[in-house]
Design a protein around this nucleic acid. Structure first.
Lengths: 346, 346
DNA sequence: GTTAGCACTCAATCATTTGGAGTGCTAACA
DNA sequence: TGTTAGCACTCCAAATGATTGAGTGCTAAC
């Protein structure tokens, strides 16, 4: 059976109506509100076909129809093709640019604003530094046994880590160590630095093996720590206003899910890994996280200097406003990329 | 009217029963389950008195009684007097000590674990640095126009801030600047550093006024930024399992409240300011945050080197398990103080 | 292929009933 | 005087049942 024009129209009508009401849609409603020029009876026949094809579902025998995940998918794909990007600069980014904040704070503000604007939940990860090359590593003596390791990376991303030494260290040795470490590690990406190359550095300096070893181990740990991305969420409470989550059980499982770091990481990682520069839509059970099967995700990556750096996700009900949310996100990401790139360059 | 022994017993019985069931408690239930040696009729008379005194409330005419805020307060005060601190070291703190993490990460883990253990929501603030004295300020050149300001404070608390200069700066000037800044600011607390003293430094160096001014302004901003405490929440979703919040409206308003930074800051600040080394209990409307009027807070401050540094709060229903939660928190705080002090000293 | 008509289904709603838990009051009792 | 049994009364919660209305599927006619 083919999905002819009329079936498509009817499917669209069902979905549009369901978007507004969150209630099953019947044939009479469609025939009255969308003048397709056919009677309810005809629409019923078509709906029967659409159900057979798996695009819509009847919650119970005498109810109207609601879209299935497959139906949503078809709809979204159809609509997205028509959608042309109409660009409007987001107001608050000017503010952000002015504030001399750190990247993390910027991202937090962005996620928060996005949640407020869309009325859905948002998720954002801080930049991943794996691919970033090390510009230099500074060792600063804080006290005789405390050393501050500062890693300055390619895009002026800075992370520090305070380490405590078992033994005091001489200024002279510190300088030598610093020179040596920089020689070896400068220009490497964070992910390239592994135990092997740490050992190589150790080997070069037979004399102070012991202290060297200690410092290097801690530097290695510090670099690993730098590598970890944080994830922030906002607007989870927005979900509770929606009619589909008036059931406390459902609402509760969603809130719990959005508190679990593994789930958030999963979303962010999936987004990050599958990045092709486009906004992705994941509808209902298309995502494999049980607790989020009643939700849809709109995800994308942001970039610094043209390279993907982190991910943003918007989480909403399956009947979320895909068109506006996506165009919102598209515009946002354009500005964010630009902003972050500027910040990283200056 | 006096609160004689029997009235107290009955009040306790009502509260204990309500703790378990979250349902209004009637006279028959009390007479059956707690053998006070009197009939339901007598208990009814007493309950009538207790209600007149404001310790219990009747939700509607033919219902049992539930405790009022005043009733909870009396109960908590009574019970807390009896309670003697029975100390048991928390298991996971050993783990924490071993991990070379930063303070923020430790606090996050603590809050998370506490939420899991108590099944309530928890709130924790990162240390406030206002009272901390500056040990030294390092200026590290990252590139010709980028300067990394590293503020090392008394307890080896380190914060850095990357600043971008309008003009390049010479190495020689940088050194001079660094010496000068350290001379002036070393030993001051973060809260003592204000625009006045920044201006004083400027004044001393008429020659390089312009660049000096620029750098100092940014340092000042950076210090202000360092000063800001973060707040983390965990376990908000735990609230939704409780019978009293099965109503979506209530649950929703709580979740929303726990997402609002101002509210969290309010809780933390109040706790911090009223700290006297003890655990505080705030029941229902005793706190002035409308959205939290159905909840109780158990709060306390943690300390570093004997000085209060940040705050922890546990948020739960009014019928929360005060006794265990408080003793849990007391033990925790003891260990946390010790742990953080150790970390700051080494 | 489309439509009108009709029987049928089912959930939601509303009024009514019923049961039970609880109270307050009164009169009797120790 | 404090305690208690008894009783009328109240009110909520759950069950029952009738009603409504939205919706379907099927059939026969156009």
């Amino acid at each position: 059976m083919q999905l002819d024009e009329r079936k498509q129209e009817i499917l669209k009508a069902i979905i549009n109506n369901y978007f507004e009401t969150a209630l099953p849609v019947g044939s009479r409603t469609i025939s009255k509100q969308y003048n397709l020029g056919v009677s309810p009876a005809t629409i019923r026949n078509e709906m029967s076909d659409l159900e057979e094809l798996g695009f819509i579902i009847q919650p119970h025998a005498s109810a109207g129809r609601i879209p299935s995940d497959k139906g949503y998918r078809l709809y979204v794909d159809m609509v997205m093709q028509l959608q042309k990007a109409e660009y409007r600069k987001l107001v608050y980014l000017e503010e952000l640019k002015a504030s001399a904040g750190r990247i993390e704070d910027l991202l937090k503000i962005i996620a928060k604003r996005l949640a407020e604007e869309t009325n859905y939940a948002t998720l954002i990860s801080t930049p991943q530094y794996k691919k970033t090359k090390i510009k230099n590593i500074q060792l600063v003596e804080v006290s005789s046994q405390d050393l501050l390791v500062i890693v300055v990376a390619e895009r002026n991303q800075v992370k520090d880590s305070l380490i405590h030494l078992e033994q005091p260290i001489h200024q002279e040795l510190l300088t030598r160590l610093s020179v040596c470490i920089n020689q070896e590690l400068k220009g490497m990406t964070l992910e390239e630095i592994n135990l092997d190359c740490i050992h190589r550095i150790k080997g070069n300096n037979a004399q102070e093996q012991r202290i060297m070893s200690e410092v290097l181990d801690v530097i290695f740990k510090a670099i690993r720590q730098i590598d970890e991305a944080d994830i922030f969420t906002y607007g989870a409470a927005n979900m509770m206003k929606l009619p589909e989550f008036q059931d406390v059980g459902k609402a509760s499982s969603i809130m719990k899910a959005l508190e679990q770091e593994e789930i958030l990481e999963d979303i962010i990682n999936t987004t990050f890994e599958s990045d092709d520069g486009n906004v992705k839509i994941v509808i209902g059970e298309e995502n494999n996280i049980q607790d989020l099967r009643d939700l849809s995700l709109i995800t994308t990556s942001y970039h610094i200097n043209g390279e993907k750096a982190g991910a943003i996700a918007i989480i909403g009900p399956k009947r979320m406003d895909y068109v506006n949310t996506i165009s919102n996100l598209r515009m946002l990401i354009k500005d964010v990329d630009e902003l972050l790139t500027q910040l990283s360059r200056r």
